[in-house]
Design a protein around this nucleic acid. Structure first.
Length: 753
RNA sequence: GGAUCUGUAGCUCAGUUGGUUAGAGCGUUCGAUUCACAUUCGAAAGGUCAGAGGUUCGAAUCCUCUCAGGUCCACCA
């Protein structure tokens, strides 16, 4: 054996042996009981980061269960990451002087498909590099045709069950990326937003958004506010930047009489609170800002200005007209911005698809309350339930092409109600009302170059196979929120991987992921998973227990930079786990990540910990070298004995004691793993191997080696290798093979009991 | 504003049903060794477990409050 353990000579070779041996497939233990984990699918277009490296926890569980003799399946896959990937691709287009408006849907989709394809395999290579024993023969992608078909089918079932509906509501809309976002995707930032006090006839009100005044359909005060009682229910005459107008005054509980003047302008089309108020009072919606972020015809002379420009111009005009009472220039408020491009999100009214969350949440809560699904660490149960409690219906429409198209068609009853944008035969980007467009362009031209269809909320909705020959239809051009498809991940992967997988491995045993996506992802899997697996909404507890997507949820923490700051590309403090693995070895990285951090807690990436883990790897290696050296003459290969068999060889008292101690130790490690206390397992393994086995026991046996004591010594070491294998698979396997222990690779030996 | 997590040796962190002298890695100091160990071994110093109060025979661990930091959520114009 080499004097020093050199991971560069070992890891690739060993991984290949494992894979070629078929050890990553559950079929290796054909009669074992099923144990399954679905890998949280990384972005197919992305790179491995430390968050993914934490999936080592899953590998530990899978390797442990494989050694227990279970049919252990760890299924890999990747996610198309709709918004994210399209954003990256559009940036690339931009760099080439192009934009997505230069292409029709199909062209754009194909280009992104090709682009992702070129980067494909990157993630896979990286996951292999860390020694993850994933069953690559079952790898899935969220845009695999069979998966897409199921996701679309789920939509149809839910629509027919009344769990999905279309509504005209405000969305968080990024006018730069041209798409809406779910509440969860909105980033709130504090910004200085001057508060303008504006004269509205006899009243004065305060607003941060004077440019939306063209869309005001009421003015509201608190019902108990005596100052304004005389106006409530009446129409007042006001002077505006566009001349005289009339507006009604309403009373609504939501108005805070202590803020500003206690008077609020109600702009239902451009403010979430006003939208709700508007619905309560049946106010008209007047959209004055377009999806391009510019003022429309309602803004009169301000038409065509961007929101920011319009605000300045309107304020200026109000000054001239003496309508501006005062300005609080220092007013700070929190506003929603696009999480990718940081553009201020406009609340805009749009027809969108919504999931009715209430019935789904009831089941998800039941699953958690009745422990059909257990969450570790337990504290996150509370987080999840609180989130469910406040959840509003889920907007699943995204105006991206990179995704799964919502599979509905709109019947064209009145062409004037529809608007379309498309690339015409001269490669020009066109958009407008359908009836106008049809005067200059043919139907085929529109269909072929289609980019986006906006259908009225009243449009008749059909599925592909329900279309009638003599009618005209246009498809929904929106795609699903990525979480709508990944929310069905355990179901769709097992349904499409290999025949019988679903029946055998669903519900999955463990869902392990970072706590940061508990709400975005785990919550959605619970909501959708129960529905999808039943094909309908069920409430029977017994049935729910059989159809939960996973039994246990295990949540790991984040890996921050060495200074404890969150790693991010913009901060430039990202450390690539593969570079660290190149330098230290995969085993070392794995051990360092697990050691010394409790489940669910964040950790700072620590070079000190890596150094310690590397020394430990080397220590293990040297124990093996010592054993090789001290091997009594004429002894054959080391047989792998069970703890029970070993008792027969322990004759001297110290040997007997040691065998007893190892028995307890193995049990201890097993218990830690069963309770997902990986850090404690790693710490005990380290402590015992080094300070009990090496420092004390080896030192003791040194002076009295004979065939018997050597057999005990070597077998205890073997047991250590077995217990350590899930944590440090490469070095333990290499030692096992070099020492010629046993007749099969370590990865498929039995867990010490 | 709501919720949640964290605050333990110089640094990074373990310590999961409350129980004897509170642990590890790195760092520091002293000694040994180069006989498996780009070393390793032995030993040492170093903590009023953020602070205050409470429950208990007993609290780093449970409760209350305070302080500090992080994260998530939230329609105050």
């Amino acid at each position: 054996m080499d004097k020093i353990y050199d991971h560069t000579k070992v890891e690739e070779k060993i991984y290949k042996q494992w894979e070629e041996g078929g050890y990553f497939q559950p079929e290796i233990n054909p009669t074992g009981k099923p144990y399954s984990i679905i890998l949280p699918p990384p972005n197919a277009n992305g790179d491995l980061h430390f968050g993914h490296a934490m999936f080592v926890v899953e590998d530990i569980l899978i390797r442990y269960h494989r050694m227990l003799g279970d049919a252990a399946l760890w299924l890999p896959g990747t996610d198309h990451a709709g918004t994210e990937t399209q954003f990256v691709f559009e940036k690339k287009l931009q760099a080439e002087g192009k934009s997505r408006f230069d292409y029709n849907r199909q062209e754009l989709f194909d280009m992104i498909w090709k682009y992702v394809g070129e980067n494909q395999g990157g993630i896979e290579k990286q996951l292999r590099r860390l020694g993850f024993s994933l069953d690559w023969s079952r790898q899935k992608f969220t845009l695999d045709p069979d998966i897409v078909a199921i996701v679309k089918d789920t939509f149809r079932k839910m629509y027919n069950d009344g769990l999905i509906y279309r509504d005209y509501r405000l969305v968080n809309y990024c006018t730069r990326d041209g798409t809406s976002f779910s509440d969860l995707e909105v980033v709130h930032e504090e910004r200085v937003n001057p508060l303008y006090y504006i004269k509205y006839g006899p009243l004065t009100l305060a607003t941060t958004r004077p440019e939306t005044k063209f869309g005001d359909t009421a003015v509201a005060v608190h019902p108990d506010d005596k100052r304004y009682t005389e106006y409530v229910g009446k129409e007042i005459e006001i002077e505006t930047v566009l001349g005289k107008a009339k507006i009604q005054v309403i009373a609504d509980e939501s108005v805070d009489p202590t803020f500003g003047t206690g008077v609020v302008k109600i702009t239902p089309a451009h403010d979430f609170a006003d939208f709700e108020t508007g619905r309560r009072h049946h106010l008209a919606m007047k959209q004055v800002i377009g999806f391009d972020g510019k003022m429309n015809h309602y803004a009169g002379e301000f038409e065509g200005l961007y929101v920011k420009q319009a605000r300045a111009a309107v304020v200026e005009k109000m000054k001239q007209l003496g309508l501006l009472v005062k300005v609080d220039e220092q007013y700070v408020s929190r506003i929603g911005v696009c999480y990718k491009c940081k553009t201020i999100l406009e609340p805009l009214p749009l027809e969108q698809w919504y999931v009715k969350v209430k019935p789904l949440i009831e089941n998800a809560n039941k699953a958690v309350d009745e422990k059909l699904v257990k969450i570790y660490p337990q504290g996150f149960v509370h987080t999840l339930k609180l989130w469910y409690a406040g959840l509003r219906d889920w907007n699943i429409s995204r105006q991206n092409v990179w995704g799964i198209q919502i599979p509905v068609w709109y019947e064209i009853a009145q062409e004037k109600d529809f608007s379309v944008s498309f690339i015409d035969s001269e490669k020009k980007h066109m958009s407008g009302q359908l009836d106008e467009i049809l005067k200059t362009h043919s139907w085929e031209e529109i269909e072929n170059g289609l980019q986006k269809v906006v259908a009225p909320i009243t449009a008749k909705i059909v599925f592909e196979d329900q279309k009638e020959k003599n009618k005209k239809y246009l498809p929904e051009t929106d795609t699903f929120d990525t979480w709508f498809s990944s929310g069905q991940w355990p179901y769709v992967t097992l349904k499409t991987s290999k025949p019988g997988d679903f029946e055998k491995f669903y519900p999955t045993s463990v869902m392990e992921t970072g706590y940061d996506i508990l709400k975005a992802w785990v919550s959605r899997m619970l909501m959708l998973g129960l529905y999808v697996a039943n094909g309908k909404h069920v409430t029977d507890t017994k049935q729910l227990e059989k159809t939960v997507p996973f039994r246990d949820v295990v949540l790991h923490g984040l890996v921050n930079d060495p200074l404890g700051k969150k790693m991010s590309k913009s901060k430039g403090n990202v450390v690539n786990p593969l570079e660290v693995a190149d330098q230290y070895g995969a085993d070392t990285v794995r051990f360092a990540l697990v050691y010394g951090t409790g489940l669910g807690n964040d950790q700072a990436m620590s070079y000190a910990k890596l150094d310690a883990a590397r020394k430990f790897t080397n220590k293990l290696w040297n124990m093996a070298r010592f054993l090789e050296m001290k091997k009594p003459e004429g002894m054959g290969s080391i047989q792998s004995l069970s703890l029970h068999q070993l008792e027969g060889f322990a004759i001297s008292q110290p040997d007997k004691d040691m065998v007893e101690e190892v028995k307890r130790f193995a049990k201890e490690i097993t218990e830690y793993l069963e309770k997902y206390q990986f850090n404690l397992a790693a710490e005990r393994l380290y402590e015992f191997s080094w300070h009990t086995f090496a420092d004390k026991y080896i030192e003791d046996v040194k002076s009295r080696v004979d065939t018997n004591s050597y057999t005990v010594l070597a077998n205890i070491y073997t047991i250590l290798l077995e217990l350590l294998h899930p944590f440090m698979p490469f070095v333990t396997e290499e030692i096992y093979s070099q020492m010629g222990i046993g007749d099969k690779p370590l990865i498929v030996t039995s867990w010490p009991k």
